[in-house]
Design a protein around this nucleic acid. Structure first.
Lengths: 137, 137
DNA sequence: ATATAAATTTTGAATGATTCTAATTTTGTG
DNA sequence: CACAAAATTAGAATCATTCAAAATTTATAT
Protein backbone atom coordinates (compact mmCIF):
# COMPACT_ATOMS: atom_id res chain seq x y z
CA UNK A 1 0.00 0.00 0.00
CA UNK A 2 1.35 3.36 -1.06
CA UNK A 3 1.93 6.21 1.33
CA UNK A 4 -0.11 8.95 -0.31
CA UNK A 5 0.49 11.23 2.63
CA UNK A 6 4.18 11.13 1.89
CA UNK A 7 3.64 11.64 -1.85
CA UNK A 8 1.69 14.80 -1.03
CA UNK A 9 4.21 16.07 1.54
CA UNK A 10 7.02 15.59 -0.97
CA UNK A 11 5.18 18.00 -3.26
CA UNK A 12 4.56 20.51 -0.47
CA UNK A 13 0.86 19.75 -0.28
CA UNK A 14 -0.64 19.37 3.15
CA UNK A 15 -2.30 15.98 3.20
CA UNK A 16 -5.93 16.48 4.16
CA UNK A 17 -8.22 13.46 4.22
CA UNK A 18 -9.90 14.74 1.06
CA UNK A 19 -6.64 15.12 -0.83
CA UNK A 20 -5.32 11.74 0.21
CA UNK A 21 -8.54 10.01 -0.80
CA UNK A 22 -8.71 11.78 -4.15
CA UNK A 23 -5.11 10.90 -4.93
CA UNK A 24 -5.65 7.30 -3.85
CA UNK A 25 -8.78 7.07 -5.97
CA UNK A 26 -6.94 8.31 -9.05
CA UNK A 27 -4.12 5.82 -8.46
CA UNK A 28 -6.47 2.87 -8.08
CA UNK A 29 -8.84 3.94 -10.85
CA UNK A 30 -6.72 4.41 -13.91
CA UNK A 31 -9.85 4.80 -16.06
CA UNK A 32 -9.33 8.57 -16.36
CA UNK A 33 -12.33 9.54 -14.21
CA UNK A 34 -14.28 12.78 -14.40
CA UNK A 35 -14.98 15.09 -11.47
CA UNK A 36 -18.44 13.64 -11.22
CA UNK A 37 -17.18 10.05 -11.07
CA UNK A 38 -14.69 10.95 -8.36
CA UNK A 39 -17.38 12.76 -6.40
CA UNK A 40 -19.93 9.95 -6.62
CA UNK A 41 -17.36 7.34 -5.64
CA UNK A 42 -15.92 9.20 -2.68
CA UNK A 43 -19.13 10.59 -1.22
CA UNK A 44 -19.82 7.38 0.76
CA UNK A 45 -16.27 7.58 2.13
CA UNK A 46 -16.36 11.30 2.97
CA UNK A 47 -20.02 12.23 3.44
CA UNK A 48 -19.33 15.95 3.71
CA UNK A 49 -17.30 16.05 0.48
CA UNK A 50 -18.11 18.83 -1.95
CA UNK A 51 -17.36 19.03 -5.67
CA UNK A 52 -15.58 22.31 -5.15
CA UNK A 53 -12.93 20.46 -3.14
CA UNK A 54 -12.42 18.05 -6.01
CA UNK A 55 -12.03 20.88 -8.52
CA UNK A 56 -9.59 22.68 -6.22
CA UNK A 57 -7.65 19.52 -5.48
CA UNK A 58 -7.35 18.42 -9.09
CA UNK A 59 -6.16 21.87 -10.10
CA UNK A 60 -3.59 21.83 -7.30
CA UNK A 61 -2.40 18.32 -8.17
CA UNK A 62 -2.09 19.27 -11.85
CA UNK A 63 -0.10 22.39 -11.02
CA UNK A 64 2.28 20.31 -8.92
CA UNK A 65 2.70 17.74 -11.66
CA UNK A 66 1.15 14.97 -9.61
CA UNK A 67 -1.56 14.20 -12.14
CA UNK A 68 -2.55 15.44 -15.57
CA UNK A 69 -5.78 16.42 -17.22
CA UNK A 70 -6.90 15.06 -20.55
CA UNK A 71 -8.73 17.47 -22.85
CA UNK A 72 -11.19 16.15 -25.41
CA UNK A 73 -13.66 17.45 -27.89
CA UNK A 74 -16.63 16.77 -25.65
CA UNK A 75 -15.43 19.42 -23.25
CA UNK A 76 -15.50 17.35 -20.13
CA UNK A 77 -12.43 16.97 -17.96
CA UNK A 78 -10.76 13.60 -17.45
CA UNK A 79 -7.89 13.10 -15.00
CA UNK A 80 -4.94 10.75 -15.10
CA UNK A 81 -2.65 9.61 -12.29
CA UNK A 82 -0.12 8.49 -14.88
CA UNK A 83 2.07 11.45 -15.81
CA UNK A 84 4.55 9.38 -17.82
CA UNK A 85 4.52 10.16 -21.57
CA UNK A 86 1.63 8.36 -23.21
CA UNK A 87 -1.38 9.22 -25.32
CA UNK A 88 -5.12 8.77 -25.10
CA UNK A 89 -7.96 7.45 -27.16
CA UNK A 90 -11.49 8.63 -26.44
CA UNK A 91 -14.30 6.42 -27.70
CA UNK A 92 -17.13 8.49 -29.10
CA UNK A 93 -19.60 5.71 -28.44
CA UNK A 94 -18.95 4.60 -24.85
CA UNK A 95 -17.13 7.82 -23.89
CA UNK A 96 -14.30 5.94 -22.17
CA UNK A 97 -10.71 7.13 -22.37
CA UNK A 98 -8.03 4.52 -23.07
CA UNK A 99 -4.27 4.68 -22.70
CA UNK A 100 -2.46 4.35 -25.98
CA UNK A 101 1.19 3.64 -26.26
CA UNK A 102 2.17 6.25 -28.78
CA UNK A 103 5.50 7.85 -28.14
CA UNK A 104 5.77 11.34 -29.58
CA UNK A 105 9.47 11.43 -28.95
CA UNK A 106 11.14 14.26 -27.13
CA UNK A 107 11.51 16.43 -30.20
CA UNK A 108 8.38 18.51 -29.67
CA UNK A 109 9.70 21.10 -27.24
CA UNK A 110 12.74 21.82 -29.35
CA UNK A 111 10.77 22.66 -32.47
CA UNK A 112 8.79 25.55 -31.12
CA UNK A 113 10.65 28.58 -29.98
CA UNK A 114 9.12 31.43 -28.05
CA UNK A 115 6.28 29.33 -26.73
CA UNK A 116 6.48 28.10 -23.14
CA UNK A 117 4.93 24.64 -23.11
CA UNK A 118 3.47 23.47 -19.82
CA UNK A 119 1.76 20.40 -21.14
CA UNK A 120 0.97 18.52 -24.29
CA UNK A 121 -1.59 15.92 -25.15
CA UNK A 122 -2.16 13.68 -28.11
CA UNK A 123 -5.80 12.70 -28.24
CA UNK A 124 -7.18 10.18 -30.68
CA UNK A 125 -10.91 9.88 -31.11
CA UNK A 126 -13.09 7.28 -32.75
CA UNK A 127 -14.56 3.90 -31.84
CA UNK A 128 -12.97 1.44 -29.42
CA UNK A 129 -12.60 -2.33 -29.96
CA UNK A 130 -15.68 -3.30 -27.97
CA UNK A 131 -17.97 -0.71 -29.49
CA UNK A 132 -16.71 -1.62 -32.95
CA UNK A 133 -17.77 -5.23 -32.39
CA UNK A 134 -21.21 -4.24 -31.12
CA UNK A 135 -21.80 -2.05 -34.14
CA UNK A 136 -20.87 -4.82 -36.56
CA UNK A 137 -23.20 -7.37 -34.88
CA UNK B 1 -13.40 34.41 -54.21
CA UNK B 2 -14.22 30.85 -53.32
CA UNK B 3 -17.50 29.21 -54.14
CA UNK B 4 -18.65 28.07 -50.72
CA UNK B 5 -21.98 27.00 -52.12
CA UNK B 6 -20.21 24.49 -54.31
CA UNK B 7 -17.98 23.29 -51.47
CA UNK B 8 -21.11 22.56 -49.44
CA UNK B 9 -22.96 20.89 -52.32
CA UNK B 10 -19.96 18.65 -52.95
CA UNK B 11 -20.36 17.37 -49.40
CA UNK B 12 -24.13 16.89 -49.75
CA UNK B 13 -24.95 19.83 -47.54
CA UNK B 14 -27.71 22.15 -48.71
CA UNK B 15 -26.19 25.61 -48.80
CA UNK B 16 -28.35 27.84 -46.65
CA UNK B 17 -27.27 31.45 -46.14
CA UNK B 18 -26.28 30.61 -42.58
CA UNK B 19 -24.13 27.67 -43.58
CA UNK B 20 -22.40 29.57 -46.37
CA UNK B 21 -21.62 32.50 -44.09
CA UNK B 22 -20.33 30.29 -41.28
CA UNK B 23 -18.07 28.39 -43.67
CA UNK B 24 -16.84 31.60 -45.24
CA UNK B 25 -16.17 33.07 -41.82
CA UNK B 26 -14.09 30.07 -40.79
CA UNK B 27 -12.12 30.22 -44.03
CA UNK B 28 -11.33 33.92 -43.68
CA UNK B 29 -10.74 33.79 -39.92
CA UNK B 30 -8.12 31.15 -39.37
CA UNK B 31 -7.80 32.18 -35.72
CA UNK B 32 -9.73 29.09 -34.56
CA UNK B 33 -12.83 30.98 -33.43
CA UNK B 34 -15.29 29.85 -30.77
CA UNK B 35 -19.06 29.60 -31.23
CA UNK B 36 -19.45 32.90 -29.45
CA UNK B 37 -16.98 34.67 -31.71
CA UNK B 38 -18.69 33.33 -34.81
CA UNK B 39 -22.07 34.36 -33.44
CA UNK B 40 -21.01 37.88 -32.51
CA UNK B 41 -19.31 38.43 -35.87
CA UNK B 42 -22.14 37.13 -38.02
CA UNK B 43 -25.06 38.63 -36.14
CA UNK B 44 -24.77 41.97 -38.00
CA UNK B 45 -24.75 40.03 -41.27
CA UNK B 46 -27.65 37.73 -40.40
CA UNK B 47 -29.71 39.55 -37.75
CA UNK B 48 -31.97 36.55 -37.07
CA UNK B 49 -29.05 34.18 -36.49
CA UNK B 50 -29.22 31.94 -33.45
CA UNK B 51 -26.41 30.16 -31.66
CA UNK B 52 -28.21 26.87 -32.09
CA UNK B 53 -27.69 27.16 -35.82
CA UNK B 54 -23.99 27.62 -35.29
CA UNK B 55 -23.77 24.57 -33.04
CA UNK B 56 -25.74 22.49 -35.51
CA UNK B 57 -23.74 23.72 -38.45
CA UNK B 58 -20.35 23.16 -36.85
CA UNK B 59 -21.35 19.65 -35.84
CA UNK B 60 -22.53 18.95 -39.38
CA UNK B 61 -19.38 20.39 -40.95
CA UNK B 62 -17.19 18.37 -38.58
CA UNK B 63 -19.05 15.17 -39.36
CA UNK B 64 -18.56 15.78 -43.08
CA UNK B 65 -14.86 16.48 -42.61
CA UNK B 66 -15.17 20.06 -43.77
CA UNK B 67 -13.72 21.54 -40.59
CA UNK B 68 -12.31 20.19 -37.38
CA UNK B 69 -12.72 21.00 -33.71
CA UNK B 70 -9.78 21.57 -31.41
CA UNK B 71 -10.09 20.08 -27.95
CA UNK B 72 -8.38 21.79 -25.04
CA UNK B 73 -8.28 21.60 -21.28
CA UNK B 74 -10.32 24.75 -20.83
CA UNK B 75 -13.33 23.01 -22.26
CA UNK B 76 -14.28 25.57 -24.82
CA UNK B 77 -14.70 24.61 -28.44
CA UNK B 78 -12.44 26.08 -31.10
CA UNK B 79 -13.01 25.39 -34.79
CA UNK B 80 -10.58 25.17 -37.66
CA UNK B 81 -11.16 25.42 -41.39
CA UNK B 82 -7.80 23.78 -41.99
CA UNK B 83 -8.23 20.02 -41.89
CA UNK B 84 -4.72 19.24 -43.12
CA UNK B 85 -2.51 17.54 -40.51
CA UNK B 86 -1.11 20.14 -38.13
CA UNK B 87 -1.09 20.77 -34.42
CA UNK B 88 -2.22 23.48 -32.06
CA UNK B 89 -0.95 25.53 -29.18
CA UNK B 90 -3.42 27.11 -26.76
CA UNK B 91 -2.18 30.01 -24.67
CA UNK B 92 -3.53 29.81 -21.15
CA UNK B 93 -3.12 33.54 -20.70
CA UNK B 94 -4.66 35.13 -23.78
CA UNK B 95 -6.74 32.03 -24.65
CA UNK B 96 -5.76 32.17 -28.32
CA UNK B 97 -5.05 29.05 -30.35
CA UNK B 98 -2.05 29.00 -32.69
CA UNK B 99 -1.12 26.64 -35.49
CA UNK B 100 2.04 24.73 -34.74
CA UNK B 101 4.05 22.89 -37.32
CA UNK B 102 4.77 19.67 -35.48
CA UNK B 103 5.19 16.59 -37.59
CA UNK B 104 3.91 13.58 -35.75
CA UNK B 105 6.16 11.48 -37.92
CA UNK B 106 5.13 7.85 -37.91
CA UNK B 107 1.58 7.45 -39.03
CA UNK B 108 -0.40 6.92 -35.90
CA UNK B 109 -3.19 4.84 -37.33
CA UNK B 110 -0.91 1.90 -38.11
CA UNK B 111 0.25 1.49 -34.53
CA UNK B 112 -3.07 0.83 -32.87
CA UNK B 113 -5.09 -2.18 -33.84
CA UNK B 114 -8.72 -2.67 -32.98
CA UNK B 115 -9.39 1.02 -32.55
CA UNK B 116 -11.09 2.91 -35.34
CA UNK B 117 -9.53 6.34 -35.41
CA UNK B 118 -11.67 9.13 -36.85
CA UNK B 119 -9.50 12.00 -35.79
CA UNK B 120 -6.42 12.86 -33.85
CA UNK B 121 -5.28 16.06 -32.23
CA UNK B 122 -2.02 17.14 -30.74
CA UNK B 123 -2.64 20.06 -28.45
CA UNK B 124 0.09 21.93 -26.62
CA UNK B 125 -0.73 24.34 -23.82
CA UNK B 126 1.23 27.02 -22.05
CA UNK B 127 2.16 30.64 -22.65
CA UNK B 128 2.56 32.22 -26.08
CA UNK B 129 5.39 34.51 -27.20
CA UNK B 130 3.53 37.76 -26.62
CA UNK B 131 2.18 36.82 -23.21
CA UNK B 132 5.61 35.59 -22.18
CA UNK B 133 7.07 39.01 -22.93
CA UNK B 134 4.35 40.82 -21.02
CA UNK B 135 4.87 38.64 -17.96
CA UNK B 136 8.62 39.25 -17.96
CA UNK B 137 8.24 43.04 -18.13
C1' DA C 1 -3.02 23.74 26.60
C1' DT C 2 -5.20 27.84 24.39
C1' DA C 3 -5.90 31.74 21.61
C1' DT C 4 -5.17 33.30 17.13
C1' DA C 5 -4.10 33.18 12.42
C1' DA C 6 -3.89 30.62 8.24
C1' DA C 7 -5.37 27.10 5.31
C1' DT C 8 -8.96 24.11 3.75
C1' DT C 9 -13.48 22.70 3.00
C1' DT C 10 -18.18 23.55 2.38
C1' DT C 11 -22.48 25.68 0.69
C1' DG C 12 -25.20 27.72 -2.46
C1' DA C 13 -25.53 30.94 -5.91
C1' DA C 14 -23.74 32.43 -10.45
C1' DT C 15 -21.80 31.79 -14.90
C1' DG C 16 -20.94 30.05 -19.38
C1' DA C 17 -21.09 26.67 -22.87
C1' DT C 18 -23.95 23.49 -24.83
C1' DT C 19 -28.27 20.86 -25.64
C1' DC C 20 -33.28 20.13 -25.87
C1' DT C 21 -37.85 21.02 -27.40
C1' DA C 22 -41.19 22.89 -29.83
C1' DA C 23 -42.69 26.52 -32.89
C1' DT C 24 -41.72 29.05 -37.04
C1' DT C 25 -39.68 29.84 -41.35
C1' DT C 26 -37.59 28.39 -45.53
C1' DT C 27 -36.78 25.21 -49.18
C1' DG C 28 -37.65 21.54 -52.46
C1' DT C 29 -40.94 18.60 -55.02
C1' DG C 30 -44.97 17.13 -57.46
C1' DC D 1 -49.29 26.61 -55.88
C1' DA D 2 -49.81 23.29 -52.15
C1' DC D 3 -47.61 20.22 -49.26
C1' DA D 4 -43.92 17.82 -47.01
C1' DA D 5 -39.38 17.96 -45.47
C1' DA D 6 -35.53 20.42 -43.89
C1' DA D 7 -33.48 24.22 -41.52
C1' DT D 8 -33.68 27.90 -38.37
C1' DT D 9 -35.12 30.14 -34.34
C1' DA D 10 -36.29 31.22 -29.43
C1' DG D 11 -36.25 30.16 -24.96
C1' DA D 12 -35.93 26.99 -21.39
C1' DA D 13 -33.09 23.35 -19.40
C1' DT D 14 -28.88 21.07 -18.36
C1' DC D 15 -24.25 20.24 -17.20
C1' DA D 16 -19.64 21.39 -15.92
C1' DT D 17 -17.25 24.73 -13.72
C1' DT D 18 -16.32 28.92 -10.94
C1' DC D 19 -17.20 32.44 -7.45
C1' DA D 20 -17.82 34.35 -2.94
C1' DA D 21 -18.51 34.02 1.58
C1' DA D 22 -19.23 31.25 5.78
C1' DA D 23 -17.78 27.33 8.50
C1' DT D 24 -14.51 24.09 9.77
C1' DT D 25 -10.05 22.29 10.44
C1' DT D 26 -5.17 22.73 11.07
C1' DA D 27 -0.90 24.94 12.38
C1' DT D 28 1.61 28.35 15.25
C1' DA D 29 3.04 31.07 19.07
C1' DT D 30 2.40 32.12 23.52
Amino acid sequence: MKDYTKILRDKDISPSIQRVKILEFLDINRSHPTVDEIFTSLLPVIPTLSKMTIYNTLKLFSAKGLIRSIPNSENIGHYDFNVEPHSHFKCRTCKRVFDIDVDLGVNIASNIDGYKIDEYNLILEGTCKECNKKIKN
